[in-house]
Computed example of a mutant assay.
Amino acid sequence: MTTVPEVVVLDHGSGNVRSVVRALEAADAHVQLTADREAALAADGLVVPGVGAYAATMDQVLAVGGDRIVERRLAGGLPVLGICVGLQIMFAAGTEHGVRSKGLDQWPGEVTRLEAEIVPHMGWNTVESPEGSVLFDGVAEERFYFVHSYAARSWELDSIGPLTPPLVTWAEHGGDRFVAAVENGALTATQFHPEKSGAAGARLLRNWLAALPRRGAGDEGTAP
């Protein structure tokens, strides 16, 4: 059983993913930047980054079969971390410039433009993390780095039966409250960039990595 977490950063053409790779390596993970299905399914954790437009990111993810990889991992309870637009595409849809695009539909709801005087929201911001958060352990009072014009500005997923309810972290910009992070079983995501958030972001990534179940060499990591 390996003690170093094996992580794949999904290589779907998103810009600046090298900073994500470096941040994870600095947090003591073994990291591959690839869109290879077998590697993505076998990893302890999968990171789905994203910058820029919602529709463009979705097109890129679909082009490398990322939708099927994410679906397969989550169906097996295997951890996935979305970052920035990688969080946004986990919702059912996103609307930019009057055009509505379908997302991965892991969560109900729509990503829309922030309603603040100054957009984009760019810079450091505090967050409101819920009690019991694993992701924000030790950094609940810290600031994180955001760069975005769109966000999920409501949360619509209800708790189902005995399942652990999602933990939703919020932030505010210009009086507009939006989803800053979600911890929902195997699916975790942040609207901010942990890889650009200094020591707080590094601690948050270590928290995520520490919670990954380590998979033995004999575990099944691929689908037929």
Rank of each mutant, 00 (worst) to 15 (best):
T3K: 12
V4N: 08
V4A: 11
E6A: 13
E6W: 06
V7K: 10
H12A: 11
N16Y: 07
R18F: 09
S19G: 06
V20G: 03
V21K: 02
R22H: 13
R22I: 07
E25P: 01
A27C: 12
H30G: 07
D36W: 01
R37L: 12
A40Q: 03
A40M: 05
A42P: 02
A42W: 04
D44C: 02
D44I: 10
L46D: 06
P49D: 11
G50S: 03
G52T: 04
G52K: 05
Y54Q: 08
T57M: 15
M58I: 13
Q60D: 14
G65D: 13
G65R: 09
G66S: 04
G66E: 07
D67E: 15
D67W: 05
E71H: 15
E71M: 12
R72G: 09
R73Y: 09
L74H: 11
G77C: 02
G77H: 04
P79C: 10
V80T: 02
C84K: 05
C84P: 04
L87S: 12
M90F: 15
A92R: 14
A92S: 15
A93S: 15
T95S: 12
E96V: 08
E96I: 06
L104D: 14
L104A: 09
W107P: 09
P108F: 11
G109M: 04
E110M: 07
E110Y: 01
E110R: 14
V111C: 11
V111D: 12
L114S: 10
E117F: 00
I118H: 14
I118M: 10
V119K: 05
P120F: 05
H121K: 06
H121C: 08
G123R: 03
V127M: 13
P130I: 10
E131Y: 02
G132F: 00
V134W: 00
V134K: 12
F136R: 09
V139C: 11
V139R: 02
A140N: 11
E141A: 15
E142R: 13
R143G: 08
F144R: 03
Y145V: 08
F146W: 01
S149M: 03
Y150T: 04
R153K: 12
D158P: 00
S159R: 15
S159H: 08
S159P: 14
I160D: 08
G161W: 04
P162L: 10
P166N: 08
P166K: 06
V168L: 06
V168W: 04
T169S: 11
T169W: 00
T169I: 07
E172A: 14
G174F: 00
G175A: 09
D176I: 03
F178C: 06
A180M: 05
A181V: 03
A186R: 08
T188W: 15
F192Y: 13
K196W: 06
S197K: 02
S197L: 00
A199L: 11
A199V: 13
A200S: 06
A200E: 03
A202F: 01
R203Q: 13
L204F: 01
L205W: 06
R206I: 04
W208K: 05
L209F: 00
A210T: 13
A210W: 02
A211S: 15
P213M: 01
R214S: 10
R215L: 14
R215G: 07
G216W: 07
D219H: 14
D219W: 03
P224V: 14
